[in-house]
Design a protein around this nucleic acid. Structure first.
Lengths: 231, 231
DNA sequence: GTCTATAACCGGATAGAC
DNA sequence: GTCTATCCGGTTATAGAC
């Protein structure tokens, strides 16, 4: 669970509390002012530490983002736990999980664009496809594996192997759409989620049709070769 | 063709040449050192103007990127012209066009990551989905419309209406993959292009099957509603 | 060896004189 | 349209405190 401790230095009690204060201040300020408008200096002031101290715990502003990922992910897991243990229908599970993602992230809607773009950079220390994010990424993908395996849907085994990864990508697509969504109550994103999850589940059930089998196999072979090659 | 002139100030001869010098210097330096490592100061020095002058022509570093888009797009159009007038097979047209994209962009492979990420920001002045990029975006989408309409493929009319937009998105996906591709001669990207273009064309031809018709209609209605809502 | 702090560096962006 | 001077914020160097 606590992967960060393996990377960041905060073994002592004193360090723990400073680190938490800095992250808490960052979280508050991100919400109040947005990501770019929040300066490392302002974070340090609100946390009651010096600028240098902030950099002791978080080597860069983007490392605060990585912590933010993890924070949101834990919240998300807590929110979806009841759903995953109760619901067996794949469409409902998927819809619920993805809806929960955007609900969990909602307080950060204004910031999400800057964050997304800064981590989209392959050179970013916290690029979602990069090594630093690997532990968290694997956890999220594992969560989607459970969404599928815990359902009563019949999924061809070759598809089942790649589906969690594909759903993780799908989630990122939805997040990027949500970032642009200015509609009241984020209704447009919710609508897109409902439509796409339905569509995905339908396509999964169609994947076994003889006419589609060839394409499915080729597509999955491609996904597999891509997934293997990167990391 | 010269959309930039409507937006950027360079009506006089003198201005023209300064502007060109600045853009040329930027292009060189981007290739030599990458996007982030290239400072506005270095660009100004190489162009033989002051820092302030550079900002007179390009309100931000990202506006150089917009010009870069346009520059690459013109190159791309020139490269694919013969193919589009000769070839009628949709798969071959699509494959050729997408291959040409990455070939045209190849000199900037090292820079592309930073550029991509900086424009992925919804707050970016040159976000591909934003109003500033609209003219160029529409040109690219129109180009994909020609890729489809100039082929001998039979495409259901509802799909034909949205296909150019979808192919533009597909192209962006390929570009993002290419950014991460470190393989010799970019062979992995080429392989992915060959596979995916084949797959796309096959799916288009399957779209008329009765079992798929319902999903196709729903998917296209969704795409249409999304495309209408944004801009 | 862990934590904190101050001062400086660097580069994107801006103001305003000519 | 061109320049110089300056701001501002992410980052780094480095010195001292526990």
């Amino acid at each position: 669970m606590n992967t960060a401790s393996a990377v960041e230095p905060h073994r002592n009690k004193r360090g723990e509390s400073s680190r938490a204060a800095i992250f808490g201040a960052a979280l508050d300020l991100f919400q109040e002012r947005g990501y770019e408008a929040t300066t490392m200096r302002a974070i340090a002031v609100r946390a009651g530490v010096s600028l240098g101290s902030s950099y002791h715990y978080f080597p860069s502003k983007e490392h605060l983002v990585l912590e933010f990922y993890r924070h949101t992910h834990e919240l998300h897991l807590a929110v979806i736990a009841p759903l995953l243990s109760r619901e067996k229908d794949l469409a409902a599970r998927l819809r619920g999980v993805i809806r929960a993602v955007i609900v969990t992230c909602e307080p950060f809607h204004g910031v999400a664009g800057s964050i997304f773009s800064s981590v989209a950079n392959p050179a970013s220390a916290v690029n979602p496809f990069g090594p630093t994010s690997r532990a968290l990424r694997d956890e999220v993908i594992a969560m989607y594996a459970e969404v599928v395996s815990g359902s009563d849907a019949k999924v061809p085994s070759d598809l089942a192997a790649e589906l969690p990864l594909l759903l993780w990508l799908y989630q990122m697509g939805i997040l990027y759409f949500w970032i642009f969504d200015r509609s009241q109550g984020r209704l447009r994103t919710l609508e897109v989620i409902d439509q796409t999850t339905d569509l995905i589940v339908r396509l999964i059930s169609l994947a076994n049709l003889p006419v589609l089998r060839g394409s499915r196999r080729r597509a999955l072979a491609l996904v597999r070769s891509i997934a293997e090659g990167s990391h």
